[in-house]
């Protein structure tokens, strides 16, 4: 374009100096921190698997899944997982019956009806419910809910599935309500306004527009809550009893998988014994069920997400 102007005489020394040690080692150290979580998973899978396999060398897998009796500590010993599974399912179903309607209704109220101020007060209170230690819930089940249950059904024992199930339900309400509310709040107002413009009431908008639109998030919250109820330990240990019992009667004492693991851990069991092995076999069953449910929840919320 125009004639080349002379070059500046300024010189920059940009050659590499010493690279700081921190910039060399920190990425490695940080990577090691991140790999702890991977090692944890490997550790969980490896210990559960290896101990379960050696357990099945002594107790045949056919018995574990075939027998209907669980009495690993008392002779004659029997290792059928079904009573523990049914106990776990009974608790979980009661909890879901309590938590799903109440959690979902709370979510609808907070998302569709409540003023911003009410929401700001109520949400943190519900979150407190999620932060209460489970041992505290156990105490509450035993000393508050059980007497109520027994006054209604006098034949009920001190330890029963119903009280524990109700309290597990109370514990998972905030999980359902806050995750569902998040999903509903993400539904754009344009959808709501369209329905209001057609003369729909608030209830009609909530149930016919918002809930269907947020369904994947809502279902995912149910599945996660389900998984949480299955893994819950202290409430059932304290309030549901320790009698492995293949029953559907919520007024009976039962034992869940988690409560069994606690019971056997409280005793002094020799390392390598069959009793020691049961911890891992039952733990493995629990781990697989919750893992499948958690993956299902992730799949549901991704696969069926409404695109707005």
């Amino acid at each position: 374009m125009n004639q080349q102007p002379p070059k500046s005489s300024a010189r920059l020394d940009l050659t590499k100096g010493k690279t700081s040690i921190a910039d060399k080692i920190m990425p490695v150290l940080l990577f090691l921190c991140a790999s702890v979580s991977v090692l944890t998973t490997i550790g969980i899978v490896y210990t559960l698997l290896s101990e379960t396999i050696s357990f099945f060398r002594i107790v045949p897998i056919q018995e574990f899944f075939g027998s209907l009796k669980w009495s690993p500590l008392i002779n004659p010993k029997s290792f059928g997982i079904w009573p523990l599974l049914s106990g776990t399912m009974l608790i979980t179903i009661i909890a879901i019956i309590v938590a799903v309607p109440i959690g979902l209704a709370s979510a609808i109220y907070l998302s569709e009806y409540a003023s911003r101020r009410v929401r700001k007060i109520v949400k943190p209170i519900l979150e407190v419910l999620a932060g209460v230690p489970t041992i505290v819930y156990g105490y509450f089940a035993l000393t508050f809910i059980t007497p109520i249950v027994r006054s209604i059904f006098p034949d009920t024992g001190v330890f029963n599935a119903l009280s524990a199930g109700i309290v597990v339900g109370i514990m998972i309400i905030p999980m359902i309500s806050s995750l569902s509310e998040d999903a509903m709040s993400a539904v754009p107002d344009s959808l709501r306004n369209g329905a209001y413009a057609l003369g729909a009431t608030r209830f009609e908008v909530a149930t016919k527009i918002v809930v269907p639109a947020a369904l994947s998030g809502i279902v995912a919250s149910f599945v996660l809550a389900f998984s949480r109820a299955i893994g819950e330990t202290m409430i059932v240990t304290v309030a549901a009893g320790s009698t492995p019992n293949l029953t559907a009667n919520p007024l009976e004492s039962i034992q869940t998988m988690t409560a069994y693991i606690v019971q056997v851990s409280m005793g002094d069991i020799p390392h390598g014994s069959v009793e020691y092995g049961t911890i891992f076999a039952v733990g493995m069953t629990l781990f697989v069920i919750t893992l499948v449910l958690n993956m299902l929840a992730q799949y549901v919320s991704k696969r069926f997400r409404e695109e707005y």
Partner: peptide
């Protein structure tokens, strides 16, 4: 090229460059 140095050459220290 800045003041006689090809700033994308391998010898250049990016941090020193940004300081300048």
């Amino acid at each position: 090229d800045i003041a006689g140095t090809d700033i994308y050459s391998n010898e250049v220290d990016v941090e020193t460059l940004r300081k300048k």
